[in-house]
């Protein structure tokens, strides 16, 4: 049982690497160079390494966000929208508060949390009130708010001097401190890790954690024994959307310094795979986030050095998605498990 728990994700990762290598090798004119940059690039110097860690920060948040929803047995497919829109609203607020105070950074994070949380809460309410699957509604609401976010960046809140659709830069004072300059790694990494560990503890040792687990595993059982299933679902969705949005805001505070159109580029969505890869174990999310960030950094470096199309990474991420819930190792045949009906 535990064997399979450990081996299956490793197997997925190995398969993903192999497929990645094959595609790179087949499509590149200088396969050896490409493979070297792709796989070893992120480790070639401290700058690249720091950037890779930094790239895993948003994934830690969105992975945790997905994990929170999964922990209560709901699906949040609107992570991308919550991540993107929550951060944009946060940025706009940040532009109008006094900077260089810790309290304003916190305030901005709370704002993004609420915005993202409200978006996901909406789909949870749709599920409870109208029985409409949160899968589809969260995705659609997320998409709608990606468009709305695009509109805000391109229209009313666009910095007229910027070459692309983006807000003004935030003051440096409000941003998160760097850890490994000149790379992008910032304090957000620590915040993300801490949140993961907190949630890990909550799941294992709190009343709420027990209720989440029970609702996920058997909502009918939970309801019969007095657990307020609806409340748990709402709470899980709210937290999930909120954490995703905080992830987006941390990314802006730590890396971008302003909201740029399309800055989310799949980070929200990938959170789902990040969480699934480690079987929704919050204590391990940082590892799978690192794996995704590694692919992404490798792709970026390879495209810089040998002009490989970075979309390969998306392809590989997709394949990881496909394999992440598969069971490669054969389970014992469960014969004769027929109950005495």
């Amino acid at each position: 049982m535990t064997h399979r728990k450990v081996l299956s994700p490793i197997f997925t990762v190995v398969v993903a690497f192999l497929i990645c290598a094959v595609i790179l090798g087949a499509t590149s004119r200088q396969p050896r160079e490409t493979l070297r940059w792709f796989f070893l690039g992120p480790f070639s110097n401290l700058y690249y390494f720091g950037n890779m860690l930094a790239a895993s920060v948003p994934l830690i948040f969105t992975g945790l966000a997905a994990c929170i929803a999964f922990s209560a047995g709901v699906f949040n497919l609107g992570l991308e929208g919550q991540y993107y829109f929550g951060a944009i609203v946060g940025t706009i607020i940040a532009l109008s508060v006094p900077t260089s105070r810790l309290s304003s950074t916190l305030f901005v994070l709370v704002v993004s949390f609420s915005v993202g949380g409200l978006l996901s809460l909406a789909s949870a309410l749709l599920k409870l009130e109208f029985g409409f699957s949160e899968l589809i509604s969260s995705f659609m609401i997320g998409q709608i708010f990606i468009y709305v976010g695009d509109f805000m960046l391109n229209g009313p809140f666009r910095d007229p001097e910027a070459a692309l659709a983006a807000t003004r830069y935030l003051d440096e004072g409000i941003g998160l401190a760097k850890i490994l300059p000149p790379s992008n790694l910032h304090v957000g990494y620590v915040i993300g890790l801490t949140l993961c560990l907190v949630f890990h503890f909550v799941r294992k040792h709190s009343v709420m954690g027990y209720e989440f687990k029970t609702v996920k595993e058997n909502p009918r059982f939970a309801k019969i024994h007095g657990i307020k299933v609806e409340k748990i679902w709402l709470l899980a969705m709210l937290l999930s959307g909120g954490v995703a949005a905080v992830g987006g805001m941390v990314e802006i505070l730590g890396v971008y310094g302003r909201a740029v159109r399309g800055f989310s580029h799949g980070n929200g969505f990938n959170g789902i795979a990040v969480s699934l890869l480690v079987r929704n174990d919050p204590a391990l999310i940082f590892l799978s986030a690192l794996f995704f960030a590694y692919l992404e950094s490798g792709g970026e470096i390879a495209s810089l050095m040998v002009q490989t199309p970075p979309e390969i990474v998306r392809l590989v991420q997709g394949i990881v998605f496909c394999l992440v819930t598969a069971e490669f190792l054969f389970r014992r045949s469960e014969r004769d498990a027929d109950s005495v009906a």
């Binding site: 789902i272 979309e311 990474v313 998306r314 997709g318 394949i319 998605f321 496909c322 992440v324």
Partner: peptide, 14 residues
């Protein structure tokens, strides 16, 4: 469901 998501992501890269 997850496989479906994966195919969608992979296709957009492919």
């Amino acid at each position: 469901f997850v496989v479906g998501l994966g195919v969608n992501v992979a296709a957009s890269g492919l």
